[in-house]
């Protein structure tokens, strides 16, 4: 225990960090909570002295808003469907990468590229891959037309082109594009973490397994995955949190109109509410999102307590 005379020194050293946290983290959180419970709070009018009734009307309005459930569904699909898929893919790729010697470094770099690329840019590239691209005369006659590279592949194998993200595209097609994008975008970070984890596993476990004639699948499920479980838990939890906060990729793919079927997410909704001076509703939505992330993370931790071997 630090002597009381010395304590002011400890506080002095902690002060810069505490100050920054207070200003940029603690105060905004308090503010968010307070705004969420003030009915129809609007920052502009609040500055001019308007006061608001305290209550849970903001939450009610957010939940009653027609599209909110859609946004929630979009967000859920982003997480629930893509996190397991990308984690399994990342695990397989990491195991494969770890077992080859030649080209390992080169492939590692290629797999890591999406991580250092701007997500809006990636979204636009995805849009181009799935999109109908064409140049038309004023009358609508095609000068040059392309369905996008994905449809070209489908047509090459004799399939029918799909309108992925165009004006008449279906919600399912939109969601499919977003899922492919999310999985691909999530891979590099997961591969990096899992590969690092794999390389820190003592090789002797594998020698021991070889001596005992352990089949490959059993080595993966009984040795590799349990020993990798702390890393797996980490990428799953951060994957869920990242998925709940997803927004920029939707803008990247569909533009700020969010596509014909309104592919907006929770965070997108919060931004929209903020930009239309509905800070009360935005705060309430943020708290709802916070609650969902909290519950999911607690479930994650609960499950991993049983399954993760530290």
């Amino acid at each position: 225990m630090v002597e009381s005379k010395q304590q002011w020194k400890a506080w002095l050293y902690l002060a810069p960090a505490i100050l920054l946290l207070l200003v940029f983290t603690v105060w905004p959180i308090i503010n968010t909570v307070s705004m969420a419970f003030q009915e129809d709070y609007c920052a502009q009018r609040a500055l001019m002295g308007e006061t608001y009734e305290i209550g849970i009307e903001n939450f009610k309005k957010v939940l009653d808003y027609g599209n909110f459930v859609d946004y929630l569904t979009n967000t859920m699909i982003l997480c629930v469907a893509t996190v397991p898929i990308s984690t399994i893919l990342a695990l397989l790729i990491a195991v494969a990468l770890n077992s080859i010697k030649t080209l390992q470094k080169g492939l590692q770099t290629i797999f890591f590229l999406p991580y250092v690329t701007n997500s809006i840019a990636i979204g636009m590239v995805f849009a181009a891959m799935f999109n109908v691209i064409g140049f038309r005369k004023a009358g609508g006659e095609a000068l040059a037309d392309s369905w996008g590279i994905i449809n070209n592949v489908i047509m090459f194998f004799g399939g029918k082109p799909v309108d992925w993200i165009g004006a008449n595209s279906s919600l399912a097609a939109n969601r499919f594009v977003v899922m492919v994008y999310s999985v691909w975008n999530a891979l590099p970070f997961k591969i990096l973490i899992l590969l690092g984890g794999l390389q820190s596993i003592n090789k002797q476990y594998y020698d021991a397994a070889r001596v005992d004639g352990t089949p490959r699948a059993r080595v993966l499920t009984k040795i590799t995955i349990p020993l990798l479980s702390p890393m797996l838990a980490y990428v799953v939890i951060t994957g869920f949190i990242g998925g709940f906060k997803e927004y920029s990729s939707i803008v990247g793919i569909f533009g700020d109109t969010m596509g014909p079927n309104d592919m907006n997410t929770m965070v997108g909704y919060i931004y929209k509410a903020l930009s239309t001076q509905k800070q009360g509703a935005a705060s309430a939505a943020a708290l709802i999102l916070f609650g969902i992330i909290l519950v999911v993370t607690l479930i994650n931790l609960r499950v991993s307590k049983k399954r993760v071997h530290y």
Binding site: Q204, D207, A208, H309
Partner: peptide
């Protein structure tokens, strides 16, 4: 085979 640091599966 018994390894120098045993290589017991820790989990």
């Amino acid at each position: 085979l018994v390894f120098q640091n045993y290589a017991l599966y820790p989990h």
